[in-house]
Amino acid sequence: MKVWQYILKRLVSVIPVFLGITMLTFFIAHVIPGDPVTLALGAKATAQQRAAFREKMGMDKPLIAQYAIYLNQILHGDLGISLRTKRSVVKDLLTYFPATLELTVVAIIICVLFGIPLGIISAVKKDKPIDHAARVFSLLGVSMPIFWLGFMLLILFYMVFPILPGGGRISLFITRPTRITGLYLLDSILSGNWAAFKDSLWHIILPASTLGFCYIAVISRMTRSSMLNVLRQDYIRTAKTKGLSEKEVIRRHALRNSLIPVVTVAGALLGQLMSGTVLTETVFTWPGIGLYAVQSIMYLDFKSIIGFTIVVSFVYVIANLVVDILYVIIDPRIRL
């Protein structure tokens, strides 16, 4: 099957997934006891005002009817109005999602840039001191509470050695890049706003490092395990006996063959990071989707909750799709 056909097939298969997710989230959110209208209108609203508001929002209809209306709205690109922010949910998601996506992608890059070399070193120098040191480093990353790590890095690099900013996506007095994708780094490159690019990059270092550090262990452990497996293969022994240096053996033969499981884990991490950034966003005042989701849940803001769920589900689907395509690129023996 050609790549474009495979992509189309996978995208079509997303439709029943979305239907299932929206239905599940919608009905679970409505089963939880609590009336968000009471909160939205405050203590002084009369029963008539609450009833009028429910009617205006369509909340007086049977649940099935509400779901059908809501599904129709989603198909027209309307995710409704957030009871909490009082803005369109689509507008909210377009504001918050790119921030989290950007943070997550940079965190994954950090994970991979540090995790893969660490894993290779550990595998090649198995059971040597450097292997143990690399494993301790990885263990530290996965053991440290992300909230604490973020705050420690903030104190170190913002207060003690004031070389990095203390939060947010960009400095107060820098002109923001023209919005094209909502990803500040990409938008500033596309619009040629180098001051914004530099400033945004400066701002993303700490939060992305905090997020990435915690998952370096995952990538490095997977790389180590996969590399050890590959290094035991006959073709590696053949390459060595033919006189290739260790570096050449790893670079030309071992690395590519050991990447498949690593790519799988990295793809799964993307979805996990997308939905787990709330603590990092809180410490670094990163205006992302994690905190938006938590606050929506606290307010039983159904439409925001569903909007967030759809977005994260979509990310998981796309991440898995990209991973499948990467498999083919890395290993031509694999067919779609």
Binding site: F151, L154, P162, T282, V283, F284, T285
Partner: peptide, 14 residues
């Protein structure tokens, strides 16, 4: 805008 009290405290101190 801040989300974490301790972060805002650092901003003020600096």
């Amino acid at each position: 805008i801040f989300k974490d009290s301790s972060t805002a405290r650092l901003w003020l101190e600096r």
